[in-house]
């Protein structure tokens, strides 16, 4: 297939094609990919989009506001916060074992009345920091290793 006359344009073609690929991947990274494919919305995003969301299911993430957790007949109720906005979570079912005050959680469900989120699944979202229990918190874990 490859004749000597078509060799040169072919090499050029490989170069151009490789450049197109690199550019496309670059656009993929720099561009809007981070805008979609979000596994959850933060509390402020969810509150902001409250009206357009209706009763569609989505996931909402934040921290459990300390002191707000109370048992309900179906499961637990608590306030979820991301520091800027708050939403009340009405969860059906047992929360996972690591659920406690201040825990970072992702809840799956939909909006009920007003800013009450009817959740039927709680997941704990952890950070990537690992420390033993006794390290004092004034000492940043990043500096320890």
């Amino acid at each position: 297939m490859t004749t000597t006359t078509s060799r040169k344009p072919r090499r050029l073609r490989y170069g151009i094609a490789a450049a197109v690929c690199v550019a496309a991947v670059g656009a993929l990274l720099v561009g809007g990919l981070s805008r979609n494919l979000v596994y959850f919305r933060t509390v402020s995003e969810a509150v902001k989009a409250r009206d357009s969301t209706g009763s569609h299911r989505f996931r909402i993430a934040g921290a459990v506001k300390p002191g707000t957790v109370e048992q309900s007949s179906k499961g637990v109720r608590f306030v979820l916060t991301d520091g800027k906005a708050e939403a009340e979570i009405d969860h059906t079912g047992d929360p996972p074992q690591l659920f406690k005050d201040g825990a970072p959680v992702v809840c799956e469900g939909h909006w009920g009345r007003g800013l009450v989120f009817l959740s039927d699944r709680i997941m704990i979202k952890h950070g990537a920091d690992y420390t033993p229990p006794k390290v004092n918190l004034t000492h940043s874990p990043g500096q320890t290793s």
Partner: peptide
């Protein structure tokens, strides 16, 4: 790139 449940590296 994406907001995931999985923690970062």
């Amino acid at each position: 790139w994406w907001r995931t449940l999985h923690q970062q590296a």
